[in-house]
């Protein structure tokens, strides 16, 4: 089953991210593995190399409680998570459960945690190896839309002209063509989000972390961005960890959905997304979709969540 059609093409580019090439891996087997991948602890080893792009083993993190005595606030507790190449997982959970904190830890920004993380099977800093679109847009106010979008490439040593040219090619898809020379202060929240997304996705990295990337977008733009994102993944074989409050979005885009609970933040349950043709607009009313959505909402509710948009 290849729900997005083009998605089975991921594996070709995906292999470039593998520590060692695996000639016996045909496209179909990658697609199948992604979608039938059941256990979070399952780990396939080929030629002694882990099959996973990203592995988290009992990752825990505590913040100082501040004024409250000398105790600590546990924010992440024993998080296990595996991500294969080309895989798309979503994390949903109540506000404050530690979703952003988890992405900070994965990205390499936050190094004060216990547990183990391996990425591409290699130790060392993950900074610059993972694209991370943070919850805030963090655009530089003195740079134009184009120069903001090109920042990531520029920092990787791509020449000013080349990075601008490559960013410029994408502006159209993001509905930003006319705003190329505008400054962030002149943009709406949704436009700023798209610039931030463009900046994060331009550098060629195997993993993309997205923290509520479409929160400020209207329904139509949002679904356009979904289509764009799926196309990008099909072309590049990137893996994605998406944090969202939108259950529909999580189902539509992901291979797996993780539901987090708070205090402390744990991965409470995990759902495999097996629905029909995702490109079909009618999929959201299909039995498989609505059944999964009901399950996810129930899981969120049992975690004490109220008011999660769906």
């Amino acid at each position: 089953m290849a729900p997005w059609g083009a998605r089975s093409g991921r594996a070709e580019r995906a292999d470039q991210y593998l520590p060692t090439p695996e000639p016996d891996l045909d496209n179909a087997s990658v697609g199948t593995m992604n979608l039938t991948h059941q256990s979070a602890n399952q780990q396939r080893v080929v030629d002694g190399q882990p099959r996973h792009l990203l592995e988290l083993r009992s990752v825990s993190k505590a913040f100082d409680a501040g004024s409250q005595s000398d105790s600590e606030r546990r924010v992440l507790h024993e998080i296990d998570l595996n991500l294969s190449i080309g895989e798309f997982v979503s994390i949903i959970g109540p506000s404050g459960c530690g979703k952003s904190t988890l992405l900070n830890v994965i990205s390499g920004l936050d190094e004060e945690f216990s547990g183990e993380i391996s990425y591409s099977g290699a130790p060392g800093s993950r900074l610059g190896q993972i694209s991370y679109m943070q919850q805030k847009d963090l655009l530089l106010p003195w740079r134009t839309v184009l120069d903001n979008a090109a920042l990531g490439l520029e920092l990787r040593g791509v020449s000013h002209a080349d990075s601008r040219a490559r960013a410029s090619e994408r502006l159209g898809q993001f509905g930003l063509e006319e705003y190329s020379g505008a400054y962030p202060a002149q943009l709406s929240g949704g436009m700023r989000q798209r610039v931030a997304l463009l900046r994060a996705t331009l550098p060629d990295t195997p993993l993309l972390l997205l923290d509520e990337p479409f929160g400020a977008l209207d329904a139509l733009t949002r679904s356009e961005m979904h289509i764009w994102l799926v196309g990008l993944l099909a072309d590049t074989g990137k893996s994605v960890v998406l944090v969202t409050h939108d259950v529909d979005e999580a189902i539509l885009l992901s291979d797996h959905v993780y539901v987090m609970k708070r205090d402390p933040g744990v991965i409470d349950s995990q759902f495999d997304v097996v629905i029909g043709d995702r490109t079909d607009p009618g999929v959201v009313t299909s039995d498989a979709f609505t059944a999964l959505k009901a399950q996810l909402l129930a899981a969120l509710r049992s975690g004490g969540t109220v008011g999660v948009s769906s």
Binding site: G108, L109, L127, G128, Q129, L138, R156, R199, P203
Partner: peptide, 10 residues
Amino acid sequence: DMVDMFRTLG
């Protein structure tokens, strides 16, 4: 936060 954004971009 801006510094962190730069760091994620390597």
